[in-house]
Amino acid sequence: MPELTRKEVEEIALLARLHLAPDEIERMQRELGAILEHFAAIASVDTSSVPAMTHAVPMDLRMRVDVPEPSLPAEVALANAPRRDGDLIVVPSSIAPARSGTGTEP
């Protein structure tokens, strides 16, 4: 498996919206690289005819009837919001020119 470059670490951090300090990037590159090396064993396992398992217990999708239940009062729903304007949650503008905009989808 290929070695992890610093550029890759920065790209993944941006995808994950995770600010990393320069020393964290370095450490992450080293540690993730070492972990991935330990995982190299899986590449040589022949799984060509093995189905992927997403869940341990096979079951059909459970569904619910289309009947409304009471809503949270807006005051309760918004009680933990870091910044509010009335019943709205306020965030920095998402349509201002982005500095690094990969992955967002307005």
């Binding site: 239940e69 809503s71 949270l72 807006a74 729903a77 918004l78 019943d87 709205l88 949650i89």
Partner: peptide, 12 residues
């Protein structure tokens, strides 16, 4: 409907 008036823990 008014903003955030039709929510539950999942919707939030």
């Amino acid at each position: 409907a008014p903003p955030n008036s039709l929510t539950d823990p999942l919707v939030m």
